[in-house]
């Protein structure tokens, strides 16, 4: 069995991306540690043929969602995701995007996180979630379109009402390669 240290080394960056897509930096770092702690405990009983990326990203995703719920429950009314962090606190992700991802419906959020953030193919995500390839593909594309709409609304509130660019947007690239790029 692969020593767990190698698992952390190989997947640390992916778990970091998942946590930072759903949480603000301090909470994301907490969730990163919680993910690997939970994984470390369960690791000896992981089947030899397990899809490690799918297993770990599921733990990370669940930890991040739990964390987010907890924060929401205990947050003071003034504490808002739009609050600026301390100046020396690097902000790897646009807080508006973090907020938008959290507001997606579960199906779209699942597809966006596993495909665009984790980097699994549509096929792998379909297998992991027990969905059809086409459904995952559609959910991921709808999720990205939704995110773009929300981000455009937040970042350019004063923009004149141009027609949403979603309609003429070309289909998501036909390749199965995960990407977070979308054409405007």
């Amino acid at each position: 069995m692969t020593p767990f240290d190698d698992i952390v080394r190989q997947h640390g960056e992916m778990v970091w991306r998942v946590c930072h897509s759903l949480l603000r930096p301090a909470d994301a770092d907490d969730a990163w540690a919680e993910t690997f702690l939970a994984a470390l405990v369960a690791y000896p009983s992981l089947p030899a043929d397990a899809h490690v990326t799918g297993w770990l990203s599921t733990i990370a995703y669940r930890k991040a969602i739990d964390h987010h719920r907890r924060i929401r429950r205990h947050a003071a009314p003034t504490a808002d995701l739009a609050d600026r962090p301390a100046a020396d606190d690097p902000e790897p992700v646009d807080p508006a995007l973090v907020e938008a991802v959290n507001q997606l419906g579960v199906k779209q959020r699942d597809a966006v996180v596993y495909h665009h953030v984790v980097g699994m193919s549509h096929r792998e995500v379909a297998d992991l979630l027990g969905l059809s390839h086409a459904a995952v593909r559609r959910n991921a594309a709808d999720g990205i379109a939704n995110l773009r709409r929300r981000l455009t609304a937040t970042t350019r509130p004063a923009a004149p009402e141009t027609p949403t660019p979603e309609a003429p947007t070309p289909e998501t690239p036909s390749s199965d390669t995960p990407t977070s790029e979308m054409s405007t």
């Binding site: 991306r17 990205i144 773009r148 790029e181 979308m182 405007t184």
Partner: peptide, 8 residues
């Protein structure tokens, strides 16, 4: 112009 969603 391709816009990159600012995922980490």
């Amino acid at each position: 112009r391709p816009t990159r969603l600012p995922f980490p």
